[in-house]
Design a protein around this nucleic acid. Structure first.
Lengths: 126, 126
DNA sequence: TTTGATGCAAATGTTTTGCATGCAA
DNA sequence: TTGCATGCAAAACATTTGCATCAAA
């Protein structure tokens, strides 16, 4: 693939994601970055988010609701979705990689991994 | 909620889903049902799929790729996504409900459940 | 006859893309 | 200079919805 050139816009997106504990959507990121670069376009946001995901510098969380969310924390971890406030929180928990073996037991193919998120009520909504 | 009236279209959708082992999208279901009812509209497909999901007669699988998939098998089970052929297969496996407890250990909120699918290569693509 | 269901088309929300211009290397 | 990145707008998708008409009860 071609080499990436520096861009202030991409830096700003990465910077923002690395400093927030939220898990914003592309649109939220767009509104946030627009405070610094008012002319930035949604297309640029999406293009850079995809580039950063490819480079492994951010994580894309999909399937939690209609739109994708992004996470600046690239360490392997699981997410929690609060059914009330819809917030996405990081979970600190022991490995559950053994579920791959459980799934593989009666399965003729090869299981490489799993995608999981947990849901319920967060502390504040309880 | 209002009582459901019988409709041939809804019956056909349910019938089709209960006899296929695939996990079709709304659009695939649309093309399939159109062979029987050529005038059926996509809106009707979507409306009935949602009704059937609400009634618990089918399952909606979301987050596996861009569009939702539907499953006529309403017994609790997990899904496998083949990274090569993109097929979705049913898994027969032991319960992994204990991962809820693992996730809850250091978590101040309340975890009610999880959404999980496995991925890898299916038998045919291996 | 009442009311939910349908077909059609328009609208919605999210993400992608074509293209001329801008900017990093 | 070269060619990746940007802004803008249009397009692409998946899904939902308004409305007049149809059909089940």
């Amino acid at each position: 693939m071609a080499t990436l050139k520096y861009s202030r816009q991409r830096e700003a997106i990465k910077e923002y994601l690395s400093h927030t504990k939220e898990h914003p959507t592309a649109d939220t990121i767009y509104m946030r970055i627009r405070e610094i670069y008012p002319n930035i376009s949604l297309g640029t946001i999406y293009r850079n988010l995809s580039l950063l995901v490819e480079k492994g510098e951010i994580i894309r969380i999909n399937g939690i609701d209609g739109s994708d969310h992004y996470d600046g924390n690239t360490q392997k971890h699981y997410h929690f979705l609060c059914k009330d406030c819809q917030r996405i929180l990081d979970l600190e928990m022991d490995s559950i990689d053994h579920i791959n073996d459980i799934a593989n037991k009666n399965f003729p193919g090869e299981i490489e991994g799993h995608a999981t998120y947990f849901y319920g009520r967060c502390e504040e909504c309880n």
